[in-house]
Design a protein around this nucleic acid. Structure first.
Lengths: 173, 173
DNA sequence: TCATATTTTCAATTAAAACTGAAAATTCCG
DNA sequence: CGGAATTTTCAGTTTTAATTGAAAATATGA
C-alpha cells in the first residue's frame, strides 16, 4: 500500500492516520479527519477515487465525508477544465481554517446551548428564592458567559491574521 | 418519574436532558454531560444512588462517569461527616469551569497534536523543495499556530475572572 | 474478627455510529 | 434521445462506544 512512496509521503501517512485518531477525541469522525488531513497536505486537488484509493475506504464513505467537509467550508470543490468528475481541495491557511471552524462550532454547538440556557432562565424567572432562584441565576450566568465568549470570538475572527497576532502579542507581554 | 417536582425542577430536567445531547456533539458522552449538568444545578452534593435514581442509570454507569468527572476536575468529592458513602459536588463558577476545561483539553487534545506536528516536521526537515518542502512548512505552520494558541490560552486562564473580563472588554471596543 | 455497607471492576449486552457496496439517480455529450 | 461516466442514496453490516448488573474487592465499626 505504501511501499514505493517518497520519504515525505511516509510522514504524511503518519500525519493522516494520527490526525484521524486525534479527531475522534474532538468528536469528529475518523474518516472525516483523515480526509481533511489528506487534502490539507495534498499538492493538488483530489477526486473521490483518489481519496478512496489512498485511504482504502468505500465510495459511499468517501462521498459522505467529502460532502460533510464541504458543508463545514473546510473543503471546496475545485472544477478542472476538461474533466467531468469533481476534484476537492482543502483550505491550507491555518488562520482561515481556524476562522471557519470557529464559525461553524459557534453555529452548531454554542448557539443551541445559549438558546437552551435562555429558555431555562425564562421558565424560572419568577422563582422567588431558594433553589429555584439559584437555578435561574445559574442559567443566566452560564448564558452570559457563553454570549460574551461569542462576542469575543466574533471580534477575533473578524480580524486579519496579522492584527490578531499583534493583539495577542500585546496580551502576552 | 417527574410528576411531583416543583416547577423549577421541570426546567432543570430539560436542562439536564438537553445538555446531554449537546455534550455528544462536543465528543463528550451523554451520561457524563448529564451528570455534570445535574450536579451543576444541585443545591447540595449528591451520592451515587441519588444520581442513579434521578437519571435512571445503572450503578456502574453512574460510578464510571462520576469518577471521570472527578478526573476532569469538574466534580469533587464532598465528604459528609457521619456519612460513610461518597457525595459529589460540581464546581458552579463558570470561570473556574472554563479554566478547568481549557486546561484539560489542552493536555489531552492539543499537546498530542503539537507533538505529532513536531514529529512530522522533524522527519521532513531535509526535504529540499517541491511537495516535500511544502509539507514540512505546513507542519511547521500548524505547529506554530497551536503553540501560540496554547500560550494565549495559558495567559488568559491564569488571570482572575475580573481581569480577563476587563481585558476582553478592551478588545470589544 | 465478622457482618454489613459501599465502591469498584468487568464480562456480557445493548445502543449508536460508521461503513460498505450496489442500485438508483443524475449529468454530460454524441 | 441513448448510453457512458459520475454522483448520490440507503438498506444491510460491521465496528465502536456505552451501559448493565452482578460478583469481587474494599472499607467500616461493633
Amino acid at each position: 500500500m505504501s511501499e514505493d512512496l517518497p520519504p515525505w509521503e511516509k510522514a504524511r501517512e503518519e500525519f493522516v492516520a494520527q490526525w484521524g485518531s486525534l479527531g475522534t477525541q474532538w468528536g469528529i469522525n475518523r474518516t472525516m479527519a483523515m480526509i481533511h488531513a489528506l487534502l490539507m497536505t495534498s499538492p493538488r486537488p483530489m477526486n473521490t477515487d483518489e481519496v478512496m484509493e489512498r485511504l482504502q475506504i468505500s465510495r459511499g464513505n468517501a462521498h459522505t465525508n467529502l460532502k460533510e467537509l464541504v458543508s463545514w467550508n473546510l473543503v471546496r470543490m475545485a472544477p478542472k477544465k476538461g474533466e467531468r468528475r469533481e476534484y476537492f481541495e482543502a483550505e491550507k491557511d491555518i488562520w482561515k481554517i481556524f476562522v471557519t471552524i470557529s464559525r461553524e462550532r459557534k453555529r452548531r454547538e454554542i448557539e443551541p446551548a445559549i438558546q437552551l440556557l435562555r429558555d431555562c432562565a425564562l421558565r424560572t424567572r419568577d422563582e422567588p428564592n431558594g433553589p429555584g432562584r439559584d437555578f435561574h441565576q445559574q442559567m443566566r450566568d452560564l448564558e452570559e458567559f457563553l454570549s460574551f465568549g461569542v462576542k469575543v470570538a466574533d471580534t477575533v475572527v473578524s480580524m486579519k491574521h496579522a492584527s490578531a497576532l499583534q493583539w495577542a502579542m500585546r496580551l502576552l507581554g
